[in-house]
Computed example of a mutant assay.
Amino acid sequence: MSPEERRKMIVRAVLPLIVEHGAAVTTAQIARTAGIGEGTIFRAFKDKDELVEACVYEALRPDGMLELLAEIPLDQPLEQRLAEAIDVLSAYLERLGAVAGAMHRSGARKRGMHGDRQASFAAMRAAVAELFEPERDELRLPPDQLGGIFLSLLFSRARSDEKAADASALIDVFLHGAVKAQ
């Protein structure tokens, strides 16, 4: 296994520990979970902090989420595409929240939690905008603008303590408005 492959394997194995323990995870826990000796950790990473930062970076990366959004079939109804997008984006936001919460609870500084938020949001917005493309001629606003509005609604829902609006209600209000048809 190449050094880069070993690093990736360790990060994938350790991510659930970071969600559980944050930066307080021990090298013994890491080694046991990854199925390696503690010395192997330090051949792959200069120290535990570098490994924790690599795990946080991996959790923040939107690549997998963007791939899942791109796989949503554009030939199905818009409501269904948006429901699938909500599932994908909600899972990503939950992962971010879990990692950020664990890091905070463990007393870790916000190391590695920044990423490139603007680039990530722009990529998410573009991926969601693509879901509106088949209906472009029927839309009141351009797909890119709708992608941004849809993400804003979803992000505010994710921050809500009550999670009052379920996915179907959010999609219904987004597509058909809040006022009953007269």
Rank of each mutant, 00 (worst) to 15 (best):
D166W: 04
M113W: 01
R136P: 01
S168K: 14
L154C: 15
A108G: 03
H176P: 14
R105W: 06
F121N: 15
L96H: 15
M103A: 03
A127P: 08
P134F: 07
M113H: 06
I171Q: 13
D172Y: 07
P142A: 15
I149F: 03
V99E: 01
A123N: 09
S120P: 06
G177Q: 11
F155Q: 11
A122E: 00
V179L: 14
A123E: 11
F174K: 03
H104R: 05
L170I: 14
L131S: 02
D161H: 10
L153G: 08
L96N: 12
L151W: 04
H114M: 12
S160Q: 06
V173A: 08
R159D: 10
G148E: 09
A98S: 13
G177E: 07
A127C: 05
L154I: 14
L131V: 03
A100Y: 09
S106L: 07
R117M: 05
S152F: 15
A158S: 15
H104M: 11
R105K: 15
A127F: 00
D116S: 09
H114Y: 12
A164H: 07
P143Y: 03
A169V: 09
A100V: 02
D161W: 05
P134Y: 03
V128Q: 02
A129M: 01
K163M: 08
D172E: 09
F121C: 15
P142H: 07
